[in-house]
Design a protein around this nucleic acid. Sequence first.
DNA 1: GAGTGGTCTAGACCACTGT
DNA 2: CAGTGGTCTAGACCACTCC
Lengths: 260, 260
Amino acid sequence: MAAKFDRIAADIRHRIESADLKPGDRLPAETALVADYNVSLGTLRRALDVLEAEQFIERVQGKGTFVRGRRARLERSAERYQWERDRVQLGEQDRRATGASERDTGLRIDDLAFTARYERAEADADLAATFGVELATPILRRTYWTRAREEAAPFVLVVSHLLVRHVEANPLLMDERREPWPGGTQHQLSTVGIEVDRITDRVFARPATVDEAREFDVFPGAPLVIDRKVSYTGTGEVVEVADNTWPADRIALTFHTYLK
Amino acid sequence: MAAKFDRIAADIRHRIESADLKPGDRLPAETALVADYNVSLGTLRRALDVLEAEQFIERVQGKGTFVRGRRARLERSAERYQWERDRVQLGEQDRRATGASERDTGLRIDDLAFTARYERAEADADLAATFGVELATPILRRTYWTRAREEAAPFVLVVSHLLVRHVEANPLLMDERREPWPGGTQHQLSTVGIEVDRITDRVFARPATVDEAREFDVFPGAPLVIDRKVSYTGTGEVVEVADNTWPADRIALTFHTYLK
DNA sequence: GAGTGGTCTAGACCACTGT
DNA sequence: CAGTGGTCTAGACCACTCC
């Protein structure tokens, strides 16, 4: 015998899936649903909790409970890396014409709000192991928030790490006011003679912590997708370690493997 | 002013992170926690709900609430595809010696319980588009559940689709009792003259539905990672479409991009 | 049977939104 | 201000585990 809240959730879920309730529609108020289903408020809210975790509904205090429209997933392909590579030789005008973010999102660059913060730091155990350097090696940490202009919360957070000894030859690379840099990180590295030869992406998902939930405007426990991208030169040296974080419903990543 | 349940969750979370409470430890009973924090049962359970969604704790009816040990993440690399490709030429003995699952999980094949079910079906809109064939084209659907022998729930569910017209030349490929097939899908396809040339993986995450939650023994809304793997021949023909599903905490996927 | 977590109720009050 | 969702309480009973 299923629990009451499960049956109520199943009923409302079914009404959404059968398009009886459409994206953007407001559900009846909780008090009305309590009367409809003849249960207590606690039980009804428990049912809505389930639907919220499943991302069928969205609750807005003071306004109501709404059927959630599936937001379009960004489709990001690893072909982007070769595309960025091919642009390294181009002049600034050509690089400036379109940015990498634009290529990914399909949004025009004007629709995106982009914030960058640079700071110097020291390699912790994790970064030291990944870069293959000593603990406390000087690091440039660059944090990027990208959001659609109409939305308050970012849809991707990127924390990128470079070795200071790689980039200090070009002071422009240490200046966050130069962002967004036309041509992206591969072009930035090319200005100090570094050519990226291969990139690995390690992808996993985990529930958002409370802080992350606040940051991305999702509920705690909502799935995040995390992609650690590591860039190597031809000699196997690590030149960039970047952690990309998205709310899981905003992203799909595609990779290509060519067999010999 | 944070909510009471938030402060209680933060407190217990802190006790776990500071190793005051260790993986496997039992938390005090709910009645004891209610007394400790001087709140009602509803509020206390709400706090535990948060920690459960964040995967800090696990609740077992009749036994107690336990600090969750982080289960090891499977590390699965796309290099596996080339490895499988290289094994296609080997004799059966060599292929049988180790299987692909074993390579991924690090578990010995004896530790894995493996169930396969084959069934004939017709291509729906999604599969027809991916294969580039007509709707209702005959399909062989192969479903694989892999689990550790000591665990009841599978840690990966694979639903693989092949075109019947590709595989009917070899009746052994239509027989689920031949599974697990030494050498995997690439070898299976090689027996009907098909050579896989490249593979794309599209990775995303989403919350589990109620049915999936039951299947994987996670709570509804827990994140799942889904990887749709599409295999192509040298002429660009699609020969396999496989959907791999893991509870998000069980998997990390690594891909490699080589730049020209 | 004792002890655990799971479900449910009825009612109170608070916080936010829009008129 | 009325109407919405958000938090909290005190208490009841049920389902499961282990002794």
